[in-house]
Design a protein around this nucleic acid. Sequence first.
DNA 1: CTGAAAGCGCTTACAG
DNA 2: CTGAAAGCGCTTACAG
Lengths: 345, 345
Amino acid sequence: MEPAPPHRKATLRDVARLAAVSPKTVSRVVNHEPGVTAAKIAAVTVAIEKLGYRPNVTASALRRADGRTATIGVVLEDVANPFSAALHRAMEDVARIRGVSILTGSVDEDPERERALIRAFVGRQVDGLVIAPASDNQAYLATELLRGTPVIFVDRPPVGVRADAVLIDNRVGARQAVRHLVEADHRAIAYLGDLRSIATAQDRLQGYRDALADAGIRLRSDHVVEDLHSAGAAEQAVHRLFASATPPTALFTAQNLVTIGAIRALRTLGRQRSVALIGFDDFPLADLLEPGVTVVAQDPSAMGELAASLIFRRLDGDFWEPAVHTIPTRLVARGSGEIRPSVRP
Amino acid sequence: MEPAPPHRKATLRDVARLAAVSPKTVSRVVNHEPGVTAAKIAAVTVAIEKLGYRPNVTASALRRADGRTATIGVVLEDVANPFSAALHRAMEDVARIRGVSILTGSVDEDPERERALIRAFVGRQVDGLVIAPASDNQAYLATELLRGTPVIFVDRPPVGVRADAVLIDNRVGARQAVRHLVEADHRAIAYLGDLRSIATAQDRLQGYRDALADAGIRLRSDHVVEDLHSAGAAEQAVHRLFASATPPTALFTAQNLVTIGAIRALRTLGRQRSVALIGFDDFPLADLLEPGVTVVAQDPSAMGELAASLIFRRLDGDFWEPAVHTIPTRLVARGSGEIRPSVRP
DNA sequence: CTGAAAGCGCTTACAG
DNA sequence: CTGAAAGCGCTTACAG
């Protein structure tokens, strides 16, 4: 009948003892199961309050029939980048409504870390997994999927495994951006893109090619710069482009950091008002720069919300064949993409 | 001797059966305990591989003497804002080295959510907690602290409970910013700040007062605007200031979103080059705006790294009296804060 | 309406 | 070096 010593965590058993009921009755009260008299509910509630009892979710999941921990794992490129952070936040908002907590981690384009994070999350018995993959093959996930743990891919498609994916159409978005530049009379449009090992970078390059082909413009290999994975690398690349004999009149920067780097370079060169630029992916304050930066905007909030919703629908027992869910992109004209060529190409 | 059916998760027991050893031996191998023959290690390893066995961290924590789950909980203002995201990322980098996963959640200045998140994380048996608090009193944490769960506060100090805190000196930082404006000959400097319910906002206002007092400038209540919690609210406030008979010649914007809103307003008014502005807290691309935005920069990476390190030192058994750890701020001059008054005050 | 027994997946504390 | 028994905090599956 004595309360648990203050230095130890109160257990369901302690509560039962103090309330003079069985552990099972405490469990019923905690889980709001019906069929407990008001008197016992009151006694248990008082005891819980008195002892500061907090149910151990992991222990309950261990015994529970469905094994649910009310926790999902989210594997992102980098929790600190605005795109990942917006995805994360949107998922949190969906999860919170259901009392579900979120484990997060950053992969930084490292396949090893992708696997390590998934292993860590699975080891912590997550109910579902949302993955922005870095590796080029996720066949290793087969084990998890067989167990019925829902897995949803975001941003990049799964390879070697069948699972839902929430993506944008990178090829269409890129094509749209480059078409916009063509419509502003550009014919010398450079592509500046991320690591060619990244599938979305490939798609964006393909969209660039499509748009040039649409316009009957020959692809110039000296205007295609790949494998830029930082703002600094992009900045240098732009300097090199404009040091060449045949500089472009417009830039299509196929990733966030590449866009920033390119803007810095144009500023240094004093060409931010004479060279057109469209970036893939929106970023904070793009509208406050001068000129405003025209972008192909993704909608990470919509992506995150959908990904989380799909996880929960699967957990609720809905079944459907794994599919690709495409979220539309949007061209946001702000000035930089509407600059016309200053010299005839 | 038959393998577990593929639709069920393999357990330590399944591995033991397949390897023809006892569960305890499998446990020894999984935990790299010494004293197992190479032959058994090999047999167990093969069985683990074959069954795709993944140890259940939560079950092991349940029985384990220290009860550690290798998971910490991080309560942030908003995982999507750059300051929180940078804190988060820095903690992840420290945690990753130790194989510790991170549960995260956003409070959005809502004390209810602060408590709900902490309850959720404690229920999931986190080993430690890092909290950027929203409530004005954390006495309710006493229960967790008594149990010995390390708790570290970041960004804002704990109230009603003794715990470590990793903070910046908001008052000193604000004073430094306003002194910088005074040194550029401003005497009509407006303060634009966040909700007065936020302790750091109070401190920043106090720093503003200090600097005015230092310079012998009388505080004008019409130049102090509080309770701005969004960019939109700040934008309107600036418009109001400049519609008044006695507009300021300089602005001290005491929070990120307030700074952004003020910049938008100055742009609209065409005064971004004639009115000085210093913001509290750095933000991405502040250097690419025109003029570049002078700020008092916090160092969220350093704060996150220190907070996580403190958690782990406590978990390692180090003991010290809870203390405030202050990370210095830095004035970053980029142009906007060096603008001189265009009209004599 | 209530509770005693067994067991979730693992480790502890022993014994051999 | 190895393993059988007990138990972490909880819920299941029964029985009354």
